[in-house]
Design a binder for these strands. Structure first.
Lengths: 235, 235
DNA sequence: CGTCATTTTGAAGACTGTCAACGCGCGTGG
DNA sequence: CCACGCGCGTTGACAGTCTTCAAAATGACG
């Protein structure tokens, strides 16, 4: 089924996306509080190329990650190749915080990305003495839970149109853009996130364009033209 | 296929390891640690009748709950009546811990139930000074996250048979029963949990009974007759 | 024993998946 | 410079799974 397009054939592993990495996009990061900021001081920067694995399902979870640039997907693979993406992470987001000793999801760079990795042992030690740190760690997990709860309703009780609409609204919010969304991920990623197929994603987007709800100037760029209609698809 | 057929022919109907069925198995409750135990001392017991609301979507989340007896469902309602159940909670389980100030789910008693309610303000205060409490609160949230992650894969990437199989395996584990499962919830609850309809639930169960994977002595009681086949439906 | 809720079963239909073909953009190399 | 291949996305036709609508069976309870 899902052919895993592991084009890790891009042999340029570990190449720094140097020139464009910190482009002055003046992006307002979502979770910018003192804790999130201090993570950057505690950790080490690591660059990843497109589709490179950051950690794998089953590996011990030693680090907490914060994205500096690029984007990341976490996912779970079923043994027959089916894939469910748990979340997309954008610059400023924190990921990799799981309860157990092992990762229950894998994480990959969607595009070339730079992340800061902080040792969990360090954080655990800090949280022992500092309730603020402990609370922050908890809050990150709790926000994650909120997100998955929303996705759950989507996957369990929504049709294709509603799922895509919800995805677009969320992306607009996450990228702080009013009308123009730049998608870092492929149609396959969106499909595996929304529990659909690429064909359904493509068809639904085309249909929304015909209905003048969105515009598709290119496959990775989407313009929201009728937010009211989009919101009406959410509940 | 082969396995199912073979087992079917060797099965003696309804024979199960009688001597140890309800033997004093020293039932170990799931979350029975000192923290969970101390919750009972901090809180107050409340009884709820079947289908009574414990809290509602949007209400401020003032309490953390632990189930003494009975069972509870949490769910989200869409405005057109569609319902997604987030989780079922059994005796010993803790629920109601959400990150924000407001509940994003509603909670109801499935059957008559007794729960202990602990003020969140109390817990928050305690966790400020006691890192162990803080960690426990975090762990409860993290376990919740793990569960929802599993459900997410189910809802996004599994067919009806796989969903029902996963549900049965989970219920068997949660109720600490090897072969006989007593369901506290209705078909409608199961359907709204698995993102299906009652008809599909019923049909799938009937089909599994025909395949000698389970037996249905009554609608609320299910016997697991072929765990291998069930497990094969999980991935 | 009758009533009501719940569950099961059946038949038809809708939505999404599957399979296949085509288009598009882009880098490579003749 | 342009043909070609490749990855990705789009579109179409058809099939399959699950839902919907309807009705019969089962079971709990007065």
């Amino acid at each position: 089924m899902l052919v895993q397009a592991k084009q890790a054939s891009t042999v340029t592993r570990f190449v720094f996306p140097a020139p464009r990495a910190h482009a002055p996009r003046a992006v307002v990061c979502k979770q910018e509080n003192s804790f999130s900021a201090s993570l950057e001081l505690m950790g080490t920067k690591f660059p990843y190329v497109r589709n490179e694995e950051i950690y794998g399902q089953g590996e011990s979870s030693e680090y907490l990650y914060k994205i500096i640039s690029g984007s990341v997907r976490t996912y779970k693979l079923l043994d027959d190749g089916r894939r469910q993406i748990g979340a997309f992470y954008l610059p400023g987001d924190v990921f990799g915080l799981e309860s157990g000793a092992e990762h229950r999801f894998s994480a990959e760079a969607i595009s070339d990305a730079v992340v800061i990795a902080v040792k969990r042992s360090t954080l655990n030690a800090l949280s022992q003495s500092d309730p603020v740190i402990a609370r922050e760690l908890w809050q990150i997990t709790a926000r994650e839970l909120d997100h998955v709860h929303d996705l759950m309703v989507l996957l369990g009780r929504s049709n294709a149109r509603e799922r895509v609409a919800a995805f677009l609204m969320k992306m607009a919010k996450d990228t702080h853009s009013a009308v123009e969304i730049e998608l870092p991920m492929s149609r396959q990623d969106i499909a595996d996130y929304l529990g659909l197929t690429i064909e359904t994603i493509s068809r639904t987007l085309s249909c929304m364009e015909r209905d003048a709800i969105i515009a598709l100037p290119s496959s990775r760029k989407i313009l929201l033209r009728n937010r009211v209609a989009l919101r009406k698809l959410n509940s």
